[in-house]
Design a protein around this nucleic acid. Structure first.
Lengths: 233, 233
DNA sequence: TGAATAGTGTCTTTCAGACAATATGCC
DNA sequence: GGCATATTGTCTGAAAGACACTATTCA
């Protein structure tokens, strides 16, 4: 008994016209105005001209996939040093009507704080959209986005990733709001605070909110702003 | 204020020589001989000639990534209908010394039962290797494999995926052994059984093991052989 | 003193984890 | 009876979840 002949194992077997294109698309999430929002760009070329799409572009020959994603992120938001992780690779042969395009999707999380500092997103055809009120999207971007939301919800429950969506200092109410907005469920205030404080992830900054017309709240910060995998909720 | 100029957005901007190659590599796991094992093939071409590597090959223009992975799986093991999921996409520019090759890694789980029925893996340069006794691997395949093991362990704890590593009927001891081998930790027999039975995933087949020279054990099967995400351990 | 939000404690139930003796079938 | 493995229950501590009142600041 012999093994089936292996085709395509040798690099010289692959003609240039047989090479698919590779892009990265990036799902940039933030929490703004009590909504989970995503950054979309309006296409100005065919196909799907004038349709909203995830920001993305071709991977250059000498950059890694992550570098390509970072470049796109920088181009769209002017922000760097945000949370970024590879999501999934979508490669159905017909997902782009022009030719075979395989896209590696990344997702990024940006705190609303960084946004108000740097975003120039009102200019031109770039915009933030609430997940619950999305326009029609180009290609299979609705599918990609749905998958990203699933991953984000999971990460929020099972890691400390929420740090990437909050400013350096925040109140426990801020924190709870982010959870409630993204997971789309209400939590009991006492249980939520008890749980989060017991995890030992937070540091009391000894500061209080200023200029509020009611009782001020304690400000907390994260001891570590790096990913840890452990159940949070 | 204007956005930076976007490059590479138009398909005609991408010259053929700028197109990376895309492959799929597949990590095929099984539990055999009290070990977590992975299928490797011996390369017969440069680079890394005579080195062991993950089975894989180029993605054809008209097949999806998953189809490409299934094709590789079929070619290497003669098995279909196994658990298969996309793992991660590796695309460092220098990961292949010849040219830019981006690989989409998949991992597959096969029950030892199916293997003994169909595998023809002793032929030619294909072999099963215990995770703890790996040879040196080609390219960045050691990194890919390490990531796959991590994902497998995680999936075992947080989903019912273990069904894909067991025959239709199995004893609770069989089940516990698979967990202990993969997670590399011992579990208390009473607590393990209590937990697994309480999840309601298993069905008592009313059959017993035959031809053992000691007390026979009950045989169980899974109610559903499809992925469910819920903590198992 | 009223409006708005911050902050806090108890009880119940469930689950994880530690732990050892008895049952069954074969030789 | 001896060997090998299967099967079973209790206790304790920790954590999840349900639940409501007091505290503080400002206008």
């Amino acid at each position: 008994m012999t093994l089936p002949k292996r085709r395509g194992r040798n690099i010289s077997d692959v003609h240039e016209s047989d090479r698919p294109l590779v892009t990265v698309d990036i799902i940039i999430f933030t929490v703004r105005d009590s909504d989970l929002q995503v950054l979309l760009v309006k296409r100005n070329v065919l196909p799907f001209k004038d349709c909203w799409a995830l920001p993305g572009g071709f991977v250059r020959m000498n950059e890694s996939l992550e570098d390509a994603a970072k470049r796109e992120l920088m181009e769209e938001t002017g922000v760097h040093d945000v949370y970024l992780e590879q999501l999934y690779t979508f490669g159905e042969p017909a997902r782009d009507p022009r030719t075979r395009v395989i896209t590696v999707a990344y997702f990024a999380l940006i705190s609303s704080e960084k946004l108000t500092l740097k975003a120039a997103t009102d200019v031109s055809a770039v915009g933030w959209f609430a997940i619950k009120k999305l326009p029609q999207l180009a290609f299979d971007h609705d599918k990609i986005l749905a998958y990203a939301v699933k991953r984000l919800r999971w990460k929020l429950e099972y890691t400390n990733i929420v740090y990437s969506l909050l400013p350096d200092k925040f109140t426990l109410t801020n924190l709870q709001n982010v959870y409630e907005i993204i997971i789309d469920r209400q939590f009991d205030k006492r249980n939520f605070r008890k749980k989060l404080l017991s995890l030992g992830l937070l540091k009391d900054t000894k500061e209080m909110t200023q200029d509020v017309s009611h009782r001020p709240a304690k400000l907390y910060s994260f001891k570590k702003r790096s990913l840890e995998i452990r159940a949070v909720l």
